[in-house]
Design a protein around this nucleic acid. Structure first.
Lengths: 194, 194
DNA sequence: CGCCTACTTGGCATTAACTGCCAGAAAAGC
DNA sequence: GCTTTTCTGGCAGTTAATGCCAAGTAGGCG
């Protein structure tokens, strides 16, 4: 059952998030202090840090859930799919299940424009990569407990690199280009179509 | 001419760097404070921050020079080389021109073991990537001032992803495996050899 | 309803990474 | 030797983040 605490918590999260993103976009990430966000969101600094462990989490916070979703989706792809196709299917789901497109565009711009944010974003995705390597390794036919297979690590890293390249191009285009199409172009340039 | 300031500066940098890396390895990056490094290196905290702008720079600092070297090397490869081969040649040079192998191993372990360091390290290398994209784009035959070519961005990102994967595997092996060989395995897994 | 428990909240103090400022020391140049 | 430039150290201050404790508030139960 959903208690009042859960509901008010969710409302508070939304409220804080809206305030934070608005301020970040208006005046820049570094120029916005936690104190200001807390003040404008009508909450104490201490509580803000309880909702979002770090300032960076206000922008790229809910990545843990997405990472788990990605892993599950890739795992559940039919066994005859190549690792490339399985990973592509996973990203197709994750990239659409994110937020509204406008919010994603706002956040992407912010992340690519702010080095410290970009670093934190990469850090979160490195965790996704580590989680996915064993999944891909199984799909490659290697034993699961065997020594780490360079191929699995390389494939996962490459897919993420192409997703990153496509996302940056998409953000630079102001969201006009199609993200999936950009990704296919990127991967095509890498895998012998050239 | 080399002035006394330049010399003592270089000595100080080495001194600080040795102290910092030793402490990081002994007790971990996060557990080591700037105050402790400054104390043990016999320098004031204020001066330490003048030599190294951030704590992370103590580990992955001197990357700007290497990035320039990489770009120059790739540019000067013969025109008939594919982008892949040109980039490989560049990395071959950079990876050996770094430090002593033991120091590289120490630093690599540190970077891969500390998420925030790993992220910052990748962020620095994203700058290298941005510098290299136009170089690769020329090599692909596209005009230099044309709209950004997804292919160039994807190729560069993929090469870096494979270098990263190979480096991590190399560090995990304690430096016993051959880095160039690992890189070739990684890239082979990506480019249709599989 | 009244009460006890569990969880949340906010304020306070503290730490750690930085930054700006200023006075003093040391090297450079003449 | 004297002036100018550059470096150094200390000090205060800012910001993100954490621990602690007292006060408030929802939830369950007799």
């Amino acid at each position: 059952m959903t208690t009042l605490w859960d509901r008010s918590r969710q409302v508070a999260v939304e409220q804080i998030l809206d305030t934070a993103v608005r301020l970040f976009v208006e005046q820049g990430y570094e120029q916005t202090t936690i104190a200001q966000i807390a003040r404008e969101a009508g909450i104490s600094q201490r509580s803000l840090f309880r909702y979002f462990g770090t300032k960076e989490d206000l922008v790229c916070g809910d990545q843990e859930a997405l990472g788990a979703l990605l892993k599950r989706t890739v795992e559940q792809q039919p066994a005859e799919l190549s690792p490339w196709d399985a990973l592509r299917a996973g990203f197709e789901l994750v990239l659409t299940a994110n937020h509204t497109p406008e919010r994603v565009l706002e956040l992407s711009r912010l992340i690519f424009a702010t080095p410290s944010l970009h670093a934190r974003y990469i850090e979160k995705r490195l965790r996704w990569q580590a989680d996915l390597v064993p999944v891909v390794q199984v799909r490659l036919g290697g034993g699961v407990g065997a020594t780490p297979d360079p191929r699995a690590k390389a494939i996962v890293a490459t897919v993420f690199a192409c997703v990153d390249a496509a996302t940056e191009l998409w953000a630079q285009s102001g969201g006009r280009l199609d993200l999936a199409e950009l990704y296919d172009q990127c991967l095509g340039a890498v895998r012998g179509d050239a």
